[in-house]
Structures are given as structure tokens and as C-alpha cells.
Amino acid sequence: MVILSLLILNKAGGLIFQRDFNEGLKKLSSNDYLVLAGTFHGVHAITSRISPVRNSGGGLEVLESDRFRMQCFQTLTGTKFLIFAEPNQPNIDVVVKRVYELYADYVMKNPFYQIEMPIRCEAFERNLVAYIKPK
């Protein structure tokens, strides 16, 4: 299972978590990541309006190129999970669900975490790394 990176956006489109799991990736500045998140949020909103499929409800879900595959999972509360993976990686759905579960556990149940703020929960990161890159 090769996951390249994970981004989490809050309801307003702000970036609250970003993590790379592969050393070969090009590093962007933190500002670039914020711009990327904001752009994606806007694109997602637009695509949800112009969707040709009636009553699809959501916006952009998958973006594929020959180098990577990006999957977006939007929760009922408007939080978006963006997973970047290798193009031929199967079962990203399972990964996304598991990451959502970890988020619900270690971020939402943490009394020291303020909702919609950047995630600084050590338990969340520890469990995430253990799941995505088990050594």
C-alpha cells in the first residue's frame, strides 16, 4: 500500500492537516499547501454544482493522472480528506475510511483540540504513521 500524502481540509476550505509519507516527493512551502487546499475547495464546490449526474450530492471525487491518483472523501460535516496515492493502487476507499476512523477517534475525542483548527494531536499522527507505513 503506497500512500504518498494526506491532506485534511476543514469546512471553510482551510488546510488543517498535511503529511507526506514518501521521501521522494517534492516539498512545497507551507503557503503553497494552503493555496492548494483553498483551490481544491473551490473546485470541489464548483463541480458539485455542475455535476452532470443528477442528485449526486458531492463534488469532485477522483483525480487521476499518469503519476498519481488523488481521491477526495467529503464527510457529512463538510470536512474533506484528500489522499494522494500511486496510480495503480487499489483499495484507496478502505484507506480513506480508516483514516476517517482515526480522525474521529484521536482528533474529535481529544478535549484539547479546537474544532476547525490545525490538527496538532500526537496520538493521531502516531496512529496514522503506524497504519500507513507499518515498519
Partner: peptide, 9 residues
């Protein structure tokens, strides 16, 4: 089990 105490505390 689900609590991560921030560094300042």
C-alpha cells in the same frame, strides 16, 4: 486513550 495533551501542558 484518545487524549493527546499539547506540549505546553
Amino acid at each position: 486513550s484518545y487524549i493527546s495533551v499539547p506540549k505546553e501542558m
